[in-house]
Simulated assay, not measured.
Amino acid sequence: MIPEDTIEVMISSLSVNTIKQYSVALNKWWIFCKGENIFDVSITKILEFLTEQFKTGSSYTSLNTTRSALSLILSCEIGIDPQIKRFFKGIFKLRPSRPKYNDTWDPAIVLNHIEKWYPLQDLSFLKLTKKLVMLLALTSAQRIQTLSLIRLNNIQFVEAGVNIEISDLLKTSKPGKQQMCITLPYFLAKPEICPVTTLQYYINYTKTLRKVEFNNTEMLLISVKKPYNYASRQTISRWIKQTMKDSGIDIKRFTPHSTRHAATSRACREGVTLDTIFRSAGWSIGSKVFANHYNRPLIKSNDKYIFAKTVCNIESH
Rank of each mutant, 00 (worst) to 15 (best):
T243H: 05
T255M: 01
F254H: 13
R260G: 04
I236F: 09
P256T: 10
H257R: 10
A291P: 00
A231Q: 05
H257D: 05
S301I: 07
I240F: 08
K252Q: 09
H261K: 13
N292F: 00
G282N: 00
A267W: 01
L221F: 15
Q242S: 14
L274A: 12
T276L: 11
T264P: 04
K226C: 03
N302P: 03
S247R: 13
A263S: 14
K288F: 00
V289H: 01
Y305E: 07
L221Y: 02
G282Y: 04
K245A: 14
A262I: 07
I240P: 13
F254C: 02
T255N: 02
T276R: 10
A281L: 01
L274N: 09
I251A: 07
K252F: 08
G248Y: 12
A262R: 08
Y230L: 13
I222A: 09
I222M: 15
N215C: 06
N229L: 13
Y305V: 02
K300M: 01
K225I: 11
I236L: 15
S223P: 01
K288G: 00
W239N: 10
I306M: 10
G282I: 06
F290M: 12
K226A: 13
F278V: 00
Y294P: 02
F307W: 04
T273W: 03
K226V: 10
T243S: 14
A263W: 04
S258E: 09
G282T: 01
T259I: 10
D246Q: 14
S265P: 02
D303I: 08
Y305I: 04
L220R: 06
K252M: 04
T243N: 07
T276D: 13
D303C: 03
K309P: 03
R233E: 15
R233Q: 15
S258A: 15
Q242D: 15
K226P: 13
S237V: 06
A291I: 02
M219D: 12
N215S: 08
E270M: 14
A281P: 00
T259P: 02
K288P: 00
R233T: 15
S287A: 15
Q234M: 09
K241E: 11
G271D: 11
D246R: 05
L274S: 10
R296F: 07
S287T: 14
I285K: 10
W239M: 13
S287P: 01
F290Q: 02
A308S: 15
T273V: 05
S258V: 07
D250Y: 09
T235W: 14
I306V: 15
T264A: 14
F278R: 06
S223V: 12
T259R: 02
S247M: 04
N295C: 06
S284L: 01
Q242Y: 07
Y230R: 15
I251F: 09
I236S: 08
H293S: 15
R279I: 11
P256S: 06
Q242L: 13
I222K: 08
Q234F: 11
I249F: 02
F278I: 00
Q234L: 12
F290P: 00
L298Q: 12
H257M: 09
A267K: 04
L220Q: 08
M244F: 11
S258N: 06
F290L: 01
T243L: 11
N229T: 14
N292T: 04
G286V: 01
S247K: 09
I277K: 01
R269W: 05
D250E: 13
S232A: 13
N215R: 14
K309C: 10
Q234N: 08
W283G: 00
R233F: 05
S287K: 04
V224A: 05
R269G: 09
V272D: 02
